[in-house]
Amino acid sequence: MSIAQIIQNAWNTQAKWLIVLRPLSWIYRFGFLLNKQCYKSKFKTAYHAPVPVMVIGNITVGGSGKTPLLIQLVKYLQQNQIKVGVISRGYGGQGPFPALVTVDAMPEIVGDEPCLIVQSTGVLMAVGANRQASIELLLQHAALDLIISDDGLQHWALERQLEWIVLDQNRGLGNQKLLPEGYLREPVSRLKDSTVIEHGAHPTSELNMHLEVAIPYLLNPLYDQAELFDPCLDYYAVVGIGFPQRFYQTLESLGVEQFQCHEFPDHHDYEIDDIQFEDSNPIITTEKDAVKLLPLLRQHPTFNREIWVIPVEAVLSNQCYALLNRQLSQLGIQIA
């Protein structure tokens, strides 16, 4: 098990030994606040895009439901004739950057989440660490009404007009400590400055979302005839996401009780040996992981183990859409 996985497990269980990392958290806090103040005082110059920018992010490390929320918002805007583009860091991608993401893009080049976003929505999307360069690349290809930044909440070099922070009710804020003692990227007080969308089955806020599971599908059908998902089988749950426990809960909600957990770091670059097991039991995984597994299967056409994918869709409260409409109207963007 890697150091990253050990620390992630400690975060999830709020292990007491994390206190030994507190001096590193003090250093992180100092550096973070210093960088933020440099932009606030104009010592460093932030980029102001020619069109409004909306950042969707979180103050925690790991999965919060941000990507499903972004996908749902993009679909909503597209349905209402809003010309929207998306930018992302492209974490895990090798570049060169900035790069446009197409439906045929490879995750090792542009990152796994950008591939999933474009495959789900067809949105115009660019990735790269330099957000200004990504925005300029988008605007070379289309006139846009709005640009959504996938993550980048702490990227002060980019000015933004809207911020939505996803807060996972299930995972919460852990021990409420900054990295690396806890999994907070920013102090809890940051939640007072932006729109907070609560992600959970039993929300306490009117601004909330939850994930609904769609029909599982086979990533690699081995036979010509259609196959039905069988929750009674014994599966290998293969996941490389920030908070795998949510996926396990999803499996249990589908009636899948027999599965062996095989966890990898978030944005893991899979190799064929990662999905080789001694028996012929099927694999079950997330859409984010499937994006990386599919090219691997194409490289190994003799691989003959079924891989089932569990798709999820964000369901937003009516209040989320009402607020979004008001916020966009204030920016001169009218929902049709």
Rank of each mutant, 00 (worst) to 15 (best):
M125Q: 09
T302Y: 14
L296G: 00
W11I: 10
D224I: 15
Q14H: 07
V20K: 12
G152I: 08
V312L: 07
I335L: 12
G122F: 13
G255C: 02
L222D: 03
N58W: 09
M106R: 15
V166Q: 02
L228P: 03
L173C: 05
I275A: 06
K292Y: 01
Y39P: 01
D289Q: 08
A126V: 05
Q79I: 08
I19Y: 12
E159T: 10
V309L: 05
I241Q: 04
S329N: 13
A214H: 11
K36N: 05
L24W: 10
I275R: 12
A15V: 05
A10T: 04
K42Y: 00
Q81I: 07
F303Y: 14
L24F: 09
D224G: 13
S149K: 14
Q245R: 14
P282R: 14
Q276I: 13
N220V: 06
V256D: 04
V84N: 09
Q176R: 15
P244I: 10
Q245A: 07
I283A: 04
N35D: 05
Y47W: 06
R185D: 00
P23N: 10
K42G: 00
H155M: 07
N35K: 15
L323N: 11
M209P: 00
H202K: 15
V84P: 01
L328C: 00
I165F: 03
D230Q: 13
I335E: 05
V188N: 08
P114A: 10
Q319A: 07
H210G: 02
Y28S: 03
T250E: 02
V166S: 01
A322Y: 10
A49E: 03
Q78T: 06
V53K: 14
G62V: 02
C320N: 06
L69W: 02
A201R: 15
E163D: 12
V103Q: 14
I19K: 15
L228G: 08
L218E: 10
Q260C: 10
H202C: 08
R305P: 01
L324H: 09
V103F: 12
Y39T: 05
I197P: 00
A237G: 02
F247Q: 06
Q299E: 09
E257W: 14
N80S: 05
F259K: 15
K83T: 04
A157H: 06
I284G: 00
D234C: 14
V118E: 09
S41N: 12
I165Y: 03
Q169T: 07
N80M: 09
G65A: 04
R246Y: 06
Q319I: 08
V188Y: 11
V238E: 04
Y223M: 15
I333L: 10
I135K: 12
V20A: 09
F247H: 05
L233V: 09
R29M: 12
K288F: 00
V213K: 15
S41R: 15
Q276N: 12
E198D: 01
S205K: 14
I109F: 11
H268A: 06
S64P: 02
T67P: 00
R326K: 15
T45W: 11
Q245D: 03
T204V: 08
P23Q: 13
D274M: 13
N220F: 09
A15Y: 07
E181T: 14
Y236P: 03
A15H: 10
L33A: 08
H268P: 01
